[in-house]
Design a protein around this nucleic acid. Structure first.
Lengths: 216, 216
DNA sequence: GTCTTGACTGAACGAGCGTTCAAAATATGC
DNA sequence: GCATATTTTGAACGCTCGTTCAGTCAAGAC
């Protein structure tokens, strides 16, 4: 099984390749829709298949089983976030700008989309119980942290950088969580401003402490 | 098995009352165990009943149906948290101490217990999709915020107090979320220290700004 | 055209879900 | 110790789940 059909060089085919990726995307999109609308427990294969306009059997063809589809969907979401981080980082000059890039990527419009955010949360809730999901989560958690630690090191020593990075990461995740759960439309830009102000305030205090130390 | 009836007072009835509460608690505890161990979707009535050592039919007798049991369990958890907040606040003198009380209650050992934390997260994930849960969540969200806003008002003006309160609340929730999802044992005391340091830093900056304003 | 091959369907299947309720067990009143 | 009231059981029910797979369909190959 698995297929993945010839990106055919040489002779004939290449018949699909494009179509296969498209189908997989289509099924993962339908999964996201179903989870967002119905919640994780009610996102059944028939609900997903109906949203994708295909039969339930097709899931087995492309993903093996339901679990395979779920994991692929989670990895798809994680991949999109990762790309966003990379993109923002590539345009950042200097450590403060790199910190901002992490903030902007993780609190960007993409992550505040109701559909997407709901699904992330549904997956998070499964992490404790599903080793397959846990692995993805661990990568997410560590990447944000190590990015932040690295850039805070430009301003302070290692232990303080770690503490600042943890607080910043927590602030990002907390704002995201509260926005996602809130009833009123979440404000991506306001969230970014909040974290940005927090970082600036901390850096200002550090400057101050450095200037002060020689004095009384 | 079970029973342990009548602490019966004077005349007839009151035969249970105690026992009834005990049974309800027992079933809600079993629900928490089942969700923590198996995850929300797999926490079936038979899994719950088995953990409580009773038959599945009993749930209907005490809670009407599964949904009733779930909502009661969520409200039970919310009630415990509320009690903890009230307790910490009752011993707090002054606004800074009251802010600390909110921090300590929401990041206390009780909220870091793996069993409890996992279940909170499972419920949060259902909030988007279940109006019954949403109501409980809204109360939680607003109470923490209004407590914090009220106490920050002792230090700054209303708009700044709102901003500080939102950041503090997000930091609390974010630290809780990341600790709950992290693989290594979460550290309740360290989380409280982080938020406490954040609040102190913000208040220090405010003092500084007030002192500075007259100058250049 | 016919043949071949891969994509896709949809019904059948067994398992397990939540709910229901008649019957059983237990506790209380007299 | 019998009659009554309350609590608890557990099997039956209808339903829906995810998986499976024989079969249909359409698109190149020849």
């Amino acid at each position: 099984m698995a297929t993945l059909a010839q990106i055919g060089g040489g002779d004939g085919r290449a018949r699909r390749a494009v179509t296969e990726d498209a189908r997989r995307r289509q099924l993962m999109d339908a999964t996201i829709d179903a989870i967002a609308e119905l919640g994780f427990p009610s996102a059944t294969l028939s609900a997903i298949a109906a949203r994708a306009g295909v039969s339930t059997g097709l899931v087995a063809f492309y993903f093996g089983d339901k679990d395979g589809l779920l994991e692929a969907t989670l990895r798809h979401l994680a991949g999109q976030l990762r790309q966003s981080v990379v993109f923002h980082l590539s345009a950042a000059a200097g450590p403060r700008a790199r910190i901002q890039a992490v903030i902007d990527a993780n609190l960007g419009a993409g992550q505040f989309d109701r559909r997407i955010a709901t699904v992330w949360l549904a997956f998070w809730a499964q992490v404790t119980v599903r080793p397959r999901f846990r692995r993805v989560q661990r990568v997410y958690e560590r990447r944000m942290l190590s990015n932040l630690i690295h850039d805070f090191r430009a301003f302070v020593g290692a232990p303080e950088a770690a503490r600042l990075a943890e607080a910043t990461a927590a602030l990002i995740d907390g704002l995201w969580l509260r926005s996602t759960l809130a009833s009123d439309a979440p404000d991506s830009a306001a969230a970014r401003r909040t974290v940005s102000a927090f970082v600036d305030a901390q850096l200002a205090l550090i400057d101050l402490a450095l200037l002060r130390k020689p004095l009384p």
